[in-house]
Amino acid sequence: MHTRLTLTQGDITQQTVDAVVNAANSSLLGGGGVDGAIHRRGGPEILAECRALRASRYGRGLPTGQAVATTAGRLPARWVIHTVGPVHSATEDRSDLLASCYAQALRTAAELGARTVAFPAISTGVYRWPIADAARTAVATVRATVATTPEAFDEIRFVVFDDRSHAAYQTALAEH
């Protein structure tokens, strides 16, 4: 089986997939950007499960580069996989943490049995990761991860919001 990597421009909260990946903050309690949109559209069930995670395994929050799943609430998906992207730094290479977000989210998706997964452009909003570099890291990591378990997924979808991001992901998908 070959996993399809696809690209779409639109709203990640409207993707009909098994799992939507949330570019969360470490608190898991909602925020701005993709995180806020997922919590608003998904409803209180997501926040309730996030609060339970904070009360148990993640008392100090979800570490950067890790991933954890909750219900998708009212989203047209079964699960939300929350991952905390790194803040971009001009003086420190944090690309391994960004790559870990994609790899750990896919590991979590495989454990859940999710066959279709939608990713946002992690860390490219308020965390200021340059979109071209973020797209290359995302595509390379997803390709490397699915190559180890090609039968695990049917489709990995990159969902971007604007034209600039769409162009960056198109370029990254064409490069490999």
Score class of each variant (00 low, 15 high):
residue 92 E to C: 04
residue 61 G to F: 06
residue 123 S to F: 08
residue 124 T to W: 07
residue 99 A to I: 04
residue 133 D to N: 11
residue 82 H to M: 01
residue 54 R to G: 01
residue 87 V to E: 13
residue 85 G to Q: 07
residue 125 G to S: 08
residue 97 L to V: 02
residue 85 G to R: 03
residue 63 P to K: 00
residue 48 A to G: 00
residue 42 G to L: 06
residue 35 D to A: 11
residue 98 L to F: 12
residue 93 D to F: 00
residue 52 A to N: 06
residue 52 A to D: 01
residue 106 L to I: 02
residue 96 D to F: 14
residue 129 W to P: 08
residue 66 Q to C: 07
residue 40 R to I: 05
residue 55 A to T: 09
residue 87 V to S: 09
residue 39 H to P: 01
residue 74 R to S: 10
residue 101 C to G: 04
residue 71 T to P: 01
residue 129 W to V: 05
residue 55 A to K: 12
residue 65 G to S: 11
residue 80 V to Q: 02
residue 133 D to G: 14
residue 55 A to W: 09
residue 46 I to N: 01
residue 92 E to H: 13
residue 99 A to T: 06
residue 61 G to R: 00
residue 107 R to S: 09
residue 99 A to Q: 15
residue 97 L to E: 15
residue 82 H to R: 03
residue 94 R to F: 02
residue 57 R to V: 01
residue 90 A to K: 13
residue 76 P to C: 11
residue 118 A to K: 03
residue 74 R to I: 00
residue 81 I to A: 03
residue 68 V to C: 04
residue 99 A to D: 12
residue 89 S to T: 09
residue 30 G to R: 10
residue 83 T to P: 10
residue 56 S to K: 09
residue 67 A to L: 12
residue 60 R to N: 15
residue 105 A to L: 09
residue 125 G to T: 11
residue 63 P to R: 02
residue 67 A to Y: 12
residue 65 G to I: 05
residue 57 R to M: 00
residue 88 H to E: 09
residue 42 G to W: 04
residue 128 R to D: 14
residue 127 Y to T: 07
residue 121 A to H: 10
residue 67 A to I: 13
residue 96 D to V: 10
residue 52 A to L: 12
residue 118 A to R: 03
residue 69 A to W: 05
residue 93 D to E: 07
residue 35 D to Q: 11
residue 42 G to M: 05
residue 125 G to Q: 04
residue 83 T to K: 03
residue 59 G to F: 08
residue 97 L to I: 01
residue 72 A to F: 06
residue 89 S to G: 07
residue 54 R to P: 05
residue 57 R to D: 12
residue 59 G to L: 08
residue 30 G to T: 13
residue 113 G to S: 04
residue 93 D to V: 01
residue 35 D to M: 11
residue 70 T to L: 05
residue 79 W to I: 02
residue 88 H to Y: 15
residue 51 R to Y: 00
residue 30 G to Q: 13
residue 91 T to R: 11
residue 102 Y to R: 01
residue 80 V to K: 02
residue 54 R to A: 10
residue 78 R to P: 03
residue 42 G to V: 04
residue 55 A to M: 10
residue 117 V to Y: 10
residue 123 S to T: 03
residue 98 L to M: 08
residue 73 G to I: 10
residue 40 R to N: 15
residue 69 A to Q: 08
residue 67 A to Q: 07
residue 121 A to M: 09
residue 63 P to E: 04
residue 60 R to L: 13
residue 99 A to H: 12
residue 124 T to R: 00
residue 58 Y to T: 08
residue 62 L to H: 01
residue 130 P to I: 08
residue 63 P to Q: 03
residue 33 G to T: 10
residue 58 Y to L: 14
residue 48 A to I: 01
residue 126 V to P: 00
